[in-house]
Amino acid sequence: METLLQQTLNGLVAGSIYALVALGYTMVYGILGLINFAHGEIVMVGALVALQTILFLSSAVPGLPPLVLLLAGVVVAVPACMALGYLIERIGYRRLRNAPRLAPLITAIGVSFLLQTLAMIIWGREFHVFPQLIDTAPMQPVAGVVVSPMQIFTIVVAFTLMGGLMLLVNKSRLGRAMRATAENHRVAGLMGINANGVIAATFIIGSGLAALAGVLFASNYAIAHYSMGFTPGLKAFTAAVLGGIGNLPGAMVGGLVLGLVESFGAGYIEHLSFGFLNSSYQDIFAFMILGAVLIFRPSGLLGERVADRA
């Protein structure tokens, strides 16, 4: 029972980060029908820019409280990633909006590897320790469950952001324009909506969320690295498909479910496979889920169908 609760909690932490990243995939896919492969790298850039800021500030102004440092990291990383997201769309994808489908996809892969390489050039190949500005040491166990302040912080921040995004999309003018553009670019344009602007906004918002996810990820696992975005990116994409790609609540549900499945899977995989597989196979769960969803329920948990009719 205790391990069950513990694994639920661990799953929720990872899952809420996946959900934040998945939102970016799903928003872009909803509007452009493009899998933005480079989205995972935004997570990485967010984490490393925040790290750089924190390191710089803590040496320039010693004695700053940890929360201020973290906040400063976020304040720099989020706009930086937003700008990056905007540039990627503007330079990489906009020209290819009407190109054959493989073209933007290949560009996206290129952008992803370009970002990784640039990060490798700037920050090197080594793993950086991300300072633990919020305590990741467990607090007093509650009902046998060990939880750290950082974990609580992660879940609170992620859910707040998700709530905020839902409000933005459902209540604001921009949100309405986004939904209209997702429905049909050209018609939205005729209705006086600036489709380019809306698409740019989508990339910007998604990248901001990814930057925050990057900071949360790095804080939780105390590590930052030029290729740290790849796997969470892939998993977040899986989460988006799981929830039904193009569907915002779906991305959130998908992220959380994926986090939970991974957490439980890692805990029980040895029993399930009679000792043949162990927790080093944790990463294949996401892919197995992705495969299973695409075979049995390609529309995802909450989405519309994705099978290719055209």
């Binding site: 493009l34 489908r101 996809l105 498909v241 099978a307």
Partner: peptide, 8 residues
């Protein structure tokens, strides 16, 4: 499925 899913 659509081509981009195949990629992933």
């Amino acid at each position: 499925l659509r081509g981009d899913y195949l990629a992933i």
